[in-house]
């Protein structure tokens, strides 16, 4: 039986798999670059629409946010990819991932941003409006900067989750980092590529985890 190092930390295999995994990493980063801005934009739309005094507007938003926060993203993804074709909707792996992650992350970002906007005292909007700013400009210049600052740890934490979420795309054969590692694993019949993928995820995310930790401490200190 081969030793632990040879099995899990096989440098020769890692070296051979590295270019392949870096290609996967590139796809992961592309996915993040697509899903995070779209999710934030969608979340912002949810948070802004939620300010509507009309129940007819707020009610569906609550439903949307609750539904997609409760719906496991993996189930959603498999449904979009493997379920929709039964309705004659063949959407492909990338589109399924993009739609699924957008629905999931926009619900989370929406909830975070809504809480941020609500954390800004009412008087801020009144002061801005009293100087003649339109509601939109007051939102952009006065409310949102404070809202984002107030929920910055949640926004960073949520973004971390989104990066980790992208590994789910491997189940629909989108060649991101985890998928590439699994392919390399089955080709070499050795788990070292998975370990290497884990290391890459860690190196990628650790700075953000540190940042998050600092932000949380700062928020606590400011309180």
């Amino acid at each position: 039986m081969p030793g632990f190092a040879e099995t899990f930390l096989n440098l020769a295999i890692m070296q051979a798999a590295l270019p392949y995994l870096l290609q996967g990493l590139w796809t992961t980063l592309l996915l993040v670059a697509l899903v995070v801005p779209l999710g934030i934009a969608g979340g912002l739309a949810v948070a802004l629409l939620y300010r509507s005094p009309r129940r007819r507007v707020r009610w569906p938003l609550i439903l949307y946010v609750d539904f997609f926060r409760a719906f496991p993203p993996l189930v959603l993804l498999i449904f979009l990819y493997a379920g929709l074709p039964f309705a004659g909707l063949e959407i492909g792996a990338f589109t399924a991932v993009a739609i699924g992650f957008f629905l999931n992350t926009s619900a989370y970002y929406g909830e975070v941003l809504r809480a941020g906007i609500e954390s800004v005292p009412r008087g801020q909007m009144e002061a801005a409006r009293s100087t003649g700013l339109s509601a939109g400009r007051a939102m952009a210049w006065v409310i949102l900067p404070q809202a984002v600052r107030n929920v910055l740890p949640d926004l960073v934490g949520n973004t971390l989750e989104v990066v980790k979420l992208t590994s789910l795309a491997s189940v629909v054969a989108l060649p991101e980092l985890l998928f590439a590692a699994r392919q390399a694993q089955s080709l070499t019949y050795n788990p070292s590529p998975i370990v290497l993928a884990a290391v890459i995820y860690f190196v990628l995310l650790w700075p953000f985890v540190r940042l998050l930790s600092r932000l949380e401490h700062r928020m606590l200190a400011a309180r």
Binding site: P121, A127, A128, T131, Q146
Partner: peptide
């Protein structure tokens, strides 16, 4: 509104802007 100034009990200054920034926004 820009021709009617308003001063509030709790000041309602924008905390993320300097004194000059508060005055300059509008």
């Amino acid at each position: 509104r820009r021709r009617i100034g308003m001063v509030f009990q709790n000041f309602n200054l924008y905390p993320h802007m300097t004194a000059a920034g508060n005055v300059m926004l509008a």
